[in-house]
């Protein structure tokens, strides 16, 4: 081949086949790339959710298809004291546990943000309650709260002689409720603490230095620098924490099963008890569906009230 020929040479234009043409066409490519994700969402999220919502309008029983009963399940639940009590306790449980988790979690995060010896080791240990399987920690708490064999009772009564009677942690409604909340707080603190710690470490030290030069007290530094800059991550962590707590099941089911006398039923445990052991799938689904508005509200609250952009960036809310 001489030079002129070489210069004039162009790659032979091969006839592209239909597959290549299809892949070059943007809409087709978009559809192709989205299908797996959409498929997963449809099969594992939309379908179960849709089925649950549909079932809540039927009287389906375990092993038997149901018929459409409209709002009957919900009408009954509104008159059912057990259900109303579960709704009330779910909200109370979520609120109390979230406050506890955030107060202690933030405190822990601030401590861990200091220069401590063995910092990374301590941080790893802090995570332990979070990585322990819930059921295991639930069983541990079940023993701690046992009316006859509680380690707490043993120490207080038999070792220290501060009391003469063992604690009855789970036998009466209010102590049982607070015991469960304490267990939930214990489990939830690491998640909050580590997330907030990550947030704290993104705050530039120069801000603190500048504030110190201006003579700001440590409270002022927290109030004016740490708190506002932590807000975005706080909003996200709060949302997740509220959602987890609201939908909690394992702790309550393993420790009290909703007892004594239904005083510690969460909506999730009641939905399971009615739906599976009680075989009334329709009613169980209705209880589960009744959780959705609360979850949506909690999410909206976190995003709009706490996640307000202006406030986060130090502007005034107005």
């Amino acid at each position: 081949m001489n030079q002129a020929e070489a210069l004039a040479w162009v790659a032979p234009r091969t006839q592209s086949n239909w597959l290549q043409r299809l892949l070059d066409w943007k809409p087709a490519l978009v559809i192709l790339c989205l299908t797996p994700a959409l498929g997963l969402l449809l099969v594992f999220l939309t379908y179960p959710l849709g089925l649950g919502i549909w079932m809540s309008f039927t009287d389906t029983q375990l092993g038997k298809p149901g018929v459409w009963v409209g709002l009957e399940n919900f009408q009954y639940l509104l008159t059912d004291r057990v259900f109303l009590n579960a709704v009330w306790f779910t909200i109370f449980y979520t609120a109390a546990a979230t406050i506890g988790k955030f107060a202690l979690g933030l405190w822990l995060a601030l401590l861990l943000n200091q220069h401590l010896p063995f910092k990374s080791l301590i941080r790893a240990i802090i995570l332990l309650p979070w990585i322990t399987p819930t059921v295991l920690s639930a069983i541990a708490f079940w023993w701690i709260y046992d009316p006859q064999f509680s380690i707490v009772s043993y120490v207080v009564v038999d070792v220290l002689h501060w009391r003469t009677k063992y604690f009855d942690f789970l036998g009466t409604p209010w102590p049982a409720r607070w015991s469960l909340i304490a267990a939930n707080v214990w489990r939830g603190i690491p998640f909050v603490a580590i997330s907030l710690l990550a947030g704290l470490q993104t705050i530039s030290p120069s801000l603190y230095e500048a504030a110190m030069l201006d003579g700001a007290s440590s409270w002022q530094r927290f109030r004016r620098i740490t708190a506002p800059l932590l807000m975005p991550i706080l909003a996200v962590v709060l949302t997740f924490s509220v959602l987890f707590t609201f939908a909690d099941f394992q702790l309550v089911y393993a420790i009290t099963r909703g007892g004594p006398i239904n005083s510690t039923h969460l909506m999730a445990t009641l939905a399971f008890q009615r739906g599976i052991p009680g075989a009334a799938l329709g009613e169980g689904a209705a209880i589960a569906v009744a959780m959705i508005p609360f979850l949506v509200l909690a999410t909206l609250f976190s995003y709009f009230a706490i996640g307000n952009r202006k406030w986060q960036q130090g502007g005034s809310d107005e």
Partner: peptide, 21 residues
């Protein structure tokens, strides 16, 4: 009764009887 029977699970009375409580 002994305290706490309102929160007893299926295993509780076994444990308490075995421990001679």
């Amino acid at each position: 009764f002994i305290e706490g029977t309102l929160s007893w699970s299926d295993a509780s009375n076994n444990k308490a009887f075995f421990a001679e409580e």
